[in-house]
Design a binder for these strands. Structure first.
Length: 562
RNA sequence: GCGCCUGUAGCUCAGCUGGAUAGAGCAACGGACUUCUAAUCCGUAGGUCGCCCGUUCGAAUCGGGCCAGGCGUGCCA
């Protein structure tokens, strides 16, 4: 059992007892219990503010309420001390034996340590990246990729059944523009005079596609009608670009369960069908020759076009069908990760979900703020069409996948992020990620040497953790025991960066502990005392497992040597 | 104009959904390796939590109003 669950079982009955004991009639539900881990260790392992919250309702001073609750509390074999402190906090100090059991739990669970059953098997879909196949991924896509992939890992760890999906916008105007861009480069490479239009894709990768076209078909398409060539070139470009995207994602340790094609959605007639459904529900109307969705009925600020007056369907039309499709696949929760520049799109999608008859809460849209990339202290503008962007590939080659993921995941998604290429490169051996990885390598090193000295490192859970008496050791056990709580918080708030904060904290405590052993022999993990060494190795392995599991959730490797 | 996001140390950012004395990394300065990895550790310095009201036992956190920056505000995607 986790500490919070135990405390809940102790405090809740006491609270009920205290409430009935009071002469002042108290009606209404008891406030939900919350335990916080005090910043100051003198305030115990956990603190509850319940007395402070109840005080005003009961019209009694907080400390008096706290006293009453404390007096109603049953004895517990887990608790060392309960005190009332400050304005009326109830502080709990748990017995060392409890924490020692927690350490054993880490060993017993191994790679599963940190798993919780928050999701209870509910189906969640996360759709992310979904970049148009019109050019390579840039660093902004990388942020969405790292976030989505890590979130998926965290949610699976938290007991959800997760599906990762990439929505492919493989039809529409931009695909024609792509094909035409290739055509211009094709002609150019075949020595025809061309003037490349402004609003087309100028990146070098278009030349690659054009070259491929030449090697496949030579000048066969030179005299063809544009309407004939463009789809062919567009198709080729898409295939090549998509292959590149998949390759980049692969090197970034990001993979998807499903790739969902907009084109197939349309070909299956789902867009038509969904439009018909909304029409039947009277949420669509015609005006100025176009077909409109009455989004304002569902709190959007204006109505939105679904079919343009020229007969073409909008991107939004596909999106309605796509979301309908998502919910028809029985996902309890659908999470969309979008760039913040799409935030204006959220209300209309929520509106459409409501119109389709689904609870809008089942859709959560995560907006990840833009990444501003600095090169030599100067802002690099990001435009796919102008080809002024730094690709994810370049960043991966220069900085590496681990460091890139870690940097992108350390920040809250809704805060803009500054990614300084030179800094990330220059600091590559001072980078925060190495601080974490180094700790893991150190721990592995200790275990390696222990093994050389004859310790059976596979049977460390038979050690006696009771021999661990250094405050740093107790503190480390407590910290790693909190990992499941961190996973929970991270899953509830959909914030992977909490894992990085946790790691930072645990690892710095470990480094300090380790270092104390360099100064005083008795504080080394491997000492003359074999039983003590075994106990410390037990802690070391517990730490290693925790760090490894946490890094895995982030998609960052845990090297055994550095 | 309206909407969303952001504003915390010189810089980059945390701050556990309202708690007790606001933290970390980098940069600066001064120290620590004969030992399980110095990619580490210890110390010094650095703050009007953008500003003003409000809510209450208690606010960086919640609400309102300003100020500043970013993004959005298409029958584009």
């Amino acid at each position: 059992m986790r500490a919070k669950e135990i405390l809940n079982d102790i405090l809740f009955p006491a609270l009920k007892k205290a409430a009935t004991k009071l002469s002042v009639p108290f009606v209404g539900p008891l406030p939900p219990l919350a335990f916080e881990i005090p910043k100051n260790e003198e305030h115990g392992d956990y603190a509850s503010n319940i007395a402070l919250i109840m005080a005003s309702k009961l019209k009694r001073p907080p400390r008096e309420v706290a006293k009453l609750i404390l007096d109603s509390m049953d004895d517990s074999s887990f608790i060392k001390e309960v005190t009332i402190a400050g304005p009326g906090f109830i502080n709990f100090l748990l017995k060392e034996s409890f924490w020692f059991d927690q350490l054993k739990r880490v060993h017993n669970q191994g790679a599963d340590f940190g798993k919780i059953d928050l999701g209870k098997g509910a189906n969640v879909q996360i759709e992310f990246v979904s970049a148009n196949p019109t050019g390579p991924l840039h660093i902004g896509h990388g942020r969405g990729a790292a976030l989505g992939d890590s979130l998926a890992s965290i949610l699976s760890f938290a007991g959800f059944r997760v599906t990762k999906e990439y929505y492919l916008n493989d039809v529409g105007n931009q695909m024609m523009t792509l094909g035409r861009s290739v055509l211009y480069r094709y002609k150019e490479l075949l020595q025809l005079p061309v003037e490349f239009p402004d609003n087309h894709y100028r990146g070098d990768y278009i030349y690659d596609v054009a070259r491929e076209a030449i090697s496949r078909w030579n000048d066969k398409y030179l005299d063809c009608d544009e309407h004939e060539v463009i789809p062919v070139f567009s198709q080729l470009a898409q295939e090549m670009i998509l292959a590149g995207i998949k390759h980049d994602l692969d090197d970034f340790s990001v993979n998807f369960d499903t790739w969902f094609s907009e084109k197939k959605l349309i070909e299956a007639g789902e867009v038509e069908k969904t439009i018909a459904e909304l029409k039947k529900k009277n949420f669509l109307y015609e005006q100025d020759g176009a077909l409109w969705f009455a989004a304002t009925k569902f709190d959007d600020e204006k109505d939105r076009v679904v079919v343009r007056s020229n007969g073409q369907k909008t991107y939004f039309a596909s999106d309605i069908a796509y979301h309908k499709n998502k919910f028809s696949r029985n996902f309890d929760q659908v999470i969309n990760i979008w760039g913040a520049d799409h935030h204006g799109y959220v209300p209309r999608v929520k509106a459409m979900v409501k119109a389709l008859g689904y609870e809008p809460e089942r859709l959560r849209v995560l907006l990840v703020q833009l990444v501003s990339l600095l090169r030599e202290g100067k802002l690099v503008s990001m435009s796919t069409r102008q080809a002024e962007f730094v690709t994810l590939r370049e960043v991966l080659d220069e900085v590496g996948s681990d460091a890139t993921r870690y940097i992108l995941l350390t920040r809250r998604p809704d805060a803009p992020l500054e990614f300084d290429l030179e800094l990330a490169k220059k600091q590559s051996d001072e980078n925060p990620v190495y601080y974490i990885q180094y700790a893991h390598a150190r721990l592995c090193s200790i275990l390696r040497i222990a093994q050389e000295r004859g310790f059976d490192i596979n049977r460390l859970n038979h050690a006696d953790p009771g021999l661990l008496t250094m405050p740093e050791e107790i503190s480390l056990i407590k910290k790693i025991s909190h990992f499941p709580d961190v996973v929970e918080g991270s899953a509830v708030s959909l914030e992977p960066h909490r894992i990085t904060i946790f790691l930072q904290d645990v690892v710095s405590t470990f480094h300090r502990y380790y270092h104390s052993g360099k100064l005083v022999d008795e504080k080394r993990v491997l000492t003359e005392n074999e039983d003590l060494s075994r106990a410390r190795l037990c802690l070391v392995e517990g730490l290693r497992l925790t760090i490894k599991n946490a890094l895995t959730l982030l998609g960052v490797s845990a090297p055994e040597r550095m």
